[in-house]
Design a protein around this nucleic acid. Structure first.
Lengths: 129, 129
DNA sequence: ATGGGGCTTTCCATTGTGGGAAGGTCAAGA
DNA sequence: TCTTGACCTTCCCACAATGGAAAGCCCCAT
């Protein structure tokens, strides 16, 4: 099947499928006319990529997960380590963002929020240190 | 003062100061030899930018906050709106990331994590829908 | 056989930061 | 005075992941 149909079945854009190919994740066969030719197994790989990206695995992680997926003798410990490292990264970023949100919410709570120019948020941003 | 000293005082890299200038946030005076020339007031602006970036305000927001900061007659409501919109964006992203982390942690909890190939994480990623 | 739509590739943009090259400038020391 | 080293300048490239657009080939239906 061509890239349009594969995209439809996998739930990805043709654009991104080409990008993943450029990144070496899935290189499909080519027809005589140069068109990419996807098998149902290829579509399964594309779906795997989509699911992994939906969990925000970076493409580098997706590459490693795909390798493990294709390896029937993989150790589940390897998969688990990749996943838990990613979880730790996600939680660290989320916590950092929530800390920023808390600070700002605190500042905003003390801001009149009316027509007066007085504003603790700007006061904080202009602090000397 | 030249860009190196301004960078040291503001806690930014000379590189980023040039970038902020290219983005139109702060355009310093120039000496006859072409060197940028920063005043103490410029350094205060740079610090403002650094504080705003530390709270992850996008440069576009920083631009608007700077405009309000410079405007002695600003309404604090304007500042507050920018801040609270940003807080909402931060919290939405943080929540999305934590939801992903929760899913993955749940899957990992059911993964043996030993030498066996069996792995619910990969099972989830290969699901058909 | 012609038109429209899908396919191909290649380049550019995003956001914020950093690396590096190639060249000008300045200050200090021999 | 000349050299040396540290600074400054601009311009290009990289990252990650996605989208957009151009220019040209291919195929099917009319």
């Amino acid at each position: 099947m061509n890239i349009g149909e594969a995209a439809g079945r996998a739930g990805l854009s043709a654009r991104m499928i080409r990008h993943y190919e450029a990144e070496g994740l899935l290189v499909p066969a080519r027809l005589a006319n140069g068109y990419r030719d996807y098998t149902p197994a290829d579509v399964a790989v594309l779906r795997f990529i989509r699911h992994a990206r939906a969990l925000a695995f970076p493409l580098e992680d997706v590459r490693r997960l795909l390798a493990l997926w294709r390896d029937r003798n993989r150790a589940s410990a390897d998969v688990r380590r990749i996943a838990l490292d990613h979880v730790a990264a996600l939680e660290a970023k989320a916590e950092a963002m929530q800390a920023m949100a808390r600070s700002l919410r605190h500042l905003a709570a003390h801001c009149h929020g009316d027509g007066r120019p007085d504003c603790p948020i700007l006061d904080e941003l202009e602090k000397t240190p």
